[in-house]
Amino acid sequence: MYCRACGVKIGCRAERCPLCKGELSYTPVPTDRYIPPAHLTEEVAFKKGTIKKRRTDVIAQAYFVFFVVTTCMLILINIYTNPKQLWSMIYMVVAGYIYYCIRYTVIAQSNFHARIFGQAIVNTVVILLLWRLYSGPGQNNWILITWLPITYFLSELLIGIYALLNFKEARKKMISLLILCIFGVIPVVTAYVADVSVKWPAIAASAFSGVVIVVTLIVGRNHLVDELKRFFHV
């Protein structure tokens, strides 16, 4: 196939010239000779790409817009109706946390242990914020009694299991696990600072962190130095 206007030969199956969008001819110059139809001879050079915006991205963006709009509206309503009690902040924290979950956990490209690590840290921030925003004497300590210890216990357990399942690459999860275990003192510290009524879940979670630290150091002490070297290399 040829485009006489552009003076080029078309080397792939085409309905029109890719350059000028003009009609194609079977020969560079007019001729009476029989030429077989192009679809029998020309090669398909590239697959017809199915191009679409990733649905997960659309959901995350739509949710972000929804989050911003509703938060602004609720803050305005809150200020006009009852400015002394900032209940709209609770919505902001929870809705913001859901956005984080979608954007950085569900559709993120990072490794599983990195996403769990991020979840645990953000969970801690959300829990502490909610507790500070919405706690009175004897109120909402259940957040600190259950939610915070469970977060650390589950996160460390999941990363630990993931590391065992991928034992060859366990070294790569070690730093995340150790840092998370060091943060594992947060449940017990907050339990005593907030003077919660039931302290044993926090103590158990922090003790579990301690055990994980000891086991990790025993199993992978040689790798830990290497891992730290590469993490902090300049």
């Binding site: 552009c6 003076g7 030969k9 078309i10 890719p18 350059l19 590239f46 790409g49």
Partner: peptide, 19 residues
């Protein structure tokens, strides 16, 4: 580009992905 090139060097075989 390709129109000029085909005048200068002769036959140019063009393909596209028709994006």
């Amino acid at each position: 580009f390709f129109s000029t090139l085909s005048k200068e060097v002769g036959e140019v075989e063009v393909i596209s992905n028709f994006r």
